[in-house]
């Protein structure tokens, strides 16, 4: 009885061994393929590792570059911020300038308007006609004064006193000048100069200071010159002149000597050959009050053309 189970186990074992023997090559093949796969895998992993190491090196470089780039970025950002701030400040300044320009434009417009307005006013005030009228007036006055010089041989020159000069006194030499200078100061007339000297004019000077009649004094002095010339002009010694007080005439004589007088003091002597006299006195008429010979009326006479007098 005991041999049968043992045989059955043995057979089972045998069958199992056979089954195992059959499976062993398959398993060996699997193990080989697995080992091959593992080797391939290891090689692949090695390659990847190498690639990874290489990439890590690159990554380090890139990181360094990145840091540099970041630093540059920060710098650029800082610069940009500064520039932005500056730009904003400039924008504000430009806006302020624009506002100022607008304001100045308005001011300029106002000023231009005022300038035009003032220009118009000034051109009205300082018109050429005013210049012309002053010049015409002066020319007319000079023409009339020239008449006195030429026709009457009479010259007046203001300065330190007033100098009166006469020509046509001496028949032998009509161009010979006879002159005297009278000064009025502190209500006193003083004869500063008399050329040629005349005798017996103290009375005239006394009268001048007493009556204040300068105009008559001048006429009388001419007459004295003429008398002296007709007598042959005796030379006299220096004489003292009267200093009796008197009030001033209408025209003050303490004026500064006019420079223009020297120019107008020209020799306008006209000689004529015909000796016969043709002096004709015309009928006298009434003198208008406004045409008296006071300085004020002389101005009104000036305005009338050629100093015409109404007859």
């Amino acid at each position: 009885m005991d041999t049968k189970p043992e045989e059955s186990v043995r057979s089972k074992m045998e069958s199992l061994k056979l089954a195992c023997d059959r499976e062993i090559p398959a398993h060996l093949q699997k193990a080989d393929s697995a080992a091959a796969a593992l080797r391939e895998s290891l090689a692949s992993i090695r390659a990847r590792v190498q690639e990874t190491v290489h990439c890590q090196g690159k990554l380090g470089q890139v990181k360094a570059k990145l840091r540099e780039a970041e630093e540059e970025l920060f710098k650029a950002l800082a610069a940009k911020t500064r520039k932005e701030t500056k730009r904003m400040a400039m924008t504000d300044a430009i806006a302020a300038r624009k506002a100022r320009i607008d304001e100045l434009r308005r001011v300029v417009q106002d000023q231009r308007a005022k300038r035009d307005e003032y220009g118009a006013i000034l051109s009205q005030q300082f018109s050429e006609s005013e210049d012309r009228s002053i010049k015409d007036s002066k020319e007319e006055i000079e023409e009339v004064i020239s008449w006195y010089n030429k026709v009457l041989g009479f010259y007046i020159e203001g300065g330190h006193g007033v100098r009166f000069t006469f020509k046509n006194i001496n028949l032998k030499n009509p161009d010979e000048e006879f002159c005297f200078t009278v000064r009025h100061a502190n209500d006193v007339y003083t004869l500063i100069d008399c050329d040629p000297h005349l005798n017996e004019i103290k009375e005239l000077l006394d009268e001048l200071n007493r009556t204040n009649g300068l105009f008559k004094f001048v006429r009388d002095m001419r007459q004295r010159f003429q008398e002296a010339a007709s007598r042959g002009l005796p030379m006299v010694m220096h004489q003292e002149y009267s200093t009796i007080s008197g009030s001033a005439p209408a025209l003050s004589m303490s004026t500064v000597r006019s420079e223009s007088f020297a120019k107008s003091h020209e020799h306008h002597q006209v000689q004529h050959e015909k000796p016969d006299r043709q002096v004709k006195k015309l009928s006298p008429g009434k003198w208008n009050k406004s045409q008296s010979l006071s300085p004020g009326s002389a101005l009104s006479l000036r305005r009338s053309p050629r100093f015409k007098v109404k007859k």
Binding site: I141, F154, V218, L251, F261, L293, S294, P295, A298, L299
Partner: peptide, 19 residues
């Protein structure tokens, strides 16, 4: 000034010229 001078001429001579 010229007017004053002219006035002096006219006052001394009592003459107003007709030109």
């Amino acid at each position: 000034r010229a007017q004053r001078k002219l006035s002096m001429y006219a006052s001394v001579t009592n003459i107003i010229p007709n030109l």
